[in-house]
C-alpha cells in the first residue's frame, strides 16, 4: 500500500516538474505494476519479521551511504541552479528538439519525437529489456506448460461472489481497453505512447483475472499466445529498421517509408509504438500469470 502511494507521490512530483509523460508512466508503473508484483510476491513468500542479525553491517552500510551522499552533495555544489534556463543541459542538444522537432517530425509532443525518432534506438533497447525480463521470469517461474491445474485461486475468487464488483468490472473493462488504444495512438499529441498503452491493456486483463478467475482469462489469452506476441512486438519494431536498411538508408531511418518526410515519420512512429505496446502488454500479462501460478503452487502446498 505504502509502496503504491510512494509511486503516486513520485508521479505527482514528476508532474510538478512538467514531465507529463514520465508522470503518466510512473503512475502506471510505480503505483500500479510494481506494487502489484510486490503483493503477489508477498502472497507467495509470506511476511517474515525477523530482526536483522549482525548489528555490525548497518554501521558499515551507514558509513558507505554517508560517504556517497557527501560526494554527491559536493558534486552538486557548483551545479547550475534548479530550474535555471541557461544551464548547460538546456544549451547544446536539447534546443534542436524543442525548436525543430515540430517541423522535422511533425508532431507536437516533443517527448514522443525524441523517444520514437531521434533516439528510437534507445527505445528498441528498452523494449528488448522488457522482453528479456519476460524471458527471465518465464524461465524462473514457469516449469509447466499445462495450466489446467490452476483451480484453487479460481475457487477462492468464486467463493466470494463479488456480484457488484463483477458487474462494475464488466462495465469498466471495455472502456479501459479503449482508453489503452487511445493512449496508444494518441501519443503523438498528448502524453502517452506504446509503453503506457501496453501497461493499461495488461491492467484490463489483470482486472479480468481478479474478478473472473484465471480459467476464463486463459480462454482469451493463453501462454503460447502471449509468448509468441511478445516476440512479435520486438520483431515488428526491428522490422522497421530492417526496412530502412534494405532501402539503403541507416537503421531506423523512417524517411524510406513515404515520400513526404513528416508522413514517413508518422508511419514509422506509429508502427514502432505498436511494437512497443504489443510487447509490453504481453510481457506484463506473462509476468502476472507466472506470479499467479506460483501463488497457486504455494496454496497447494499449504493445503497438503
Amino acid at each position: 500500500m505504502l509502496f503504491s502511494i510512494y509511486g503516486l507521490i513520485s508521479a505527482s512530483f514528476f508532474m510538478s516538474m512538467d514531465a507529463v509523460d514520465v508522470a503518466f508512466t510512473e503512475a502506471a508503473v510505480g503505483a500500479g505494476v510494481s506494487p502489484l508484483l510486490m503483493l503477489a510476491t508477498l502472497a507467495s513468500v509470506g511476511r517474515y519479521q525477523k530482526k536483522p542479525t549482525d548489528p555490525e553491517i548497518p554501521k558499515v552500510a551507514l558509513l558507505l551511504v554517508i560517504i556517497t551522499g557527501i560526494l554527491l552533495i559536493i558534486g552538486t555544489l557548483d551545479m547550475p541552479a534548479f530550474g535555471a534556463a541557461d544551464a548547460p543541459a538546456h544549451q547544446h542538444v536539447a534546443p534542436r528538439y524543442i525548436k525543430e522537432s515540430p517541423e522535422e517530425i511533425g508532431i507536437p509532443n516533443m517527448v514522443t519525437s525524441v523517444l520514437a525518432s531521434y533516439r528510437a534506438y534507445d527505445t528498441l533497447g528498452e523494449v528488448v529489456v522488457i522482453f528479456t525480463a519476460g524471458i527471465g521470469v518465464l524461465s524462473l517461474l514457469n516449469f509447466r506448460r499445462r495450466r489446467r491445474n490452476i483451480h484453487l485461486i479460481d475457487d477462492i475468487i468464486a467463493i466470494d461472489e463479488h456480484k457488484i464488483l463483477r458487474i462494475v468490472s464488466k462495465i469498466l473493462i471495455p472502456p479501459i481497453l479503449i482508453f489503452g488504444l487511445y493512449v496508444q495512438f494518441h501519443g503523438d499529441f498528448g502524453p502517452g505512447g506504446g509503453f503506457q498503452a501496453g501497461v493499461i491493456f495488461a491492467a484490463a486483463i489483470i482486472l479480468y483475472v481478479l474478478f473472473f478467475g484465471v480459467k476464463y482469462a486463459h480462454q482469451v489469452v493463453n501462454q503460447t499466445f502471449v509468448r509468441v506476441f511478445s516476440a512479435i512486438g520486438v520483431l515488428l519494431y526491428g522490422s522497421v529498421g530492417v526496412v530502412s536498411l534494405l532501402n539503403g538508408k541507416n537503421f531506423l531511418d523512417y524517411h524510406v517509408l513515404a515520400e513526404n518526410p513528416t508522413t514517413a515519420q508518422h508511419i514509422g512512429i506509429l508502427v514502432i509504438e505498436l511494437g512497443v505496446g504489443i510487447t509490453v502488454a504481453c510481457v506484463m500479462i506473462l509476468i502476472f500469470f507466472s506470479f499467479i501460478e506460483n501463488i497457486e503452487k504455494v496454496i497447494q502446498e499449504l493445503r497438503k
Binding site: L124, V128, V228, A231, L235, G238, G241, V242, N250, F251
Partner: peptide
C-alpha cells in the same frame, strides 16, 4: 550492405533472440 556493418553487428543477435523464441 558494407556500410551498415556497425549496426548489423548488434541487431543480428538482438533480433535473432525473439526469432529464436518463436522456434
Amino acid at each position: 550492405m558494407i556500410s551498415h556493418l556497425p549496426i548489423l553487428q548488434v541487431i543480428i543477435p538482438l533480433l535473432g533472440a525473439p526469432a529464436c523464441l518463436l522456434l
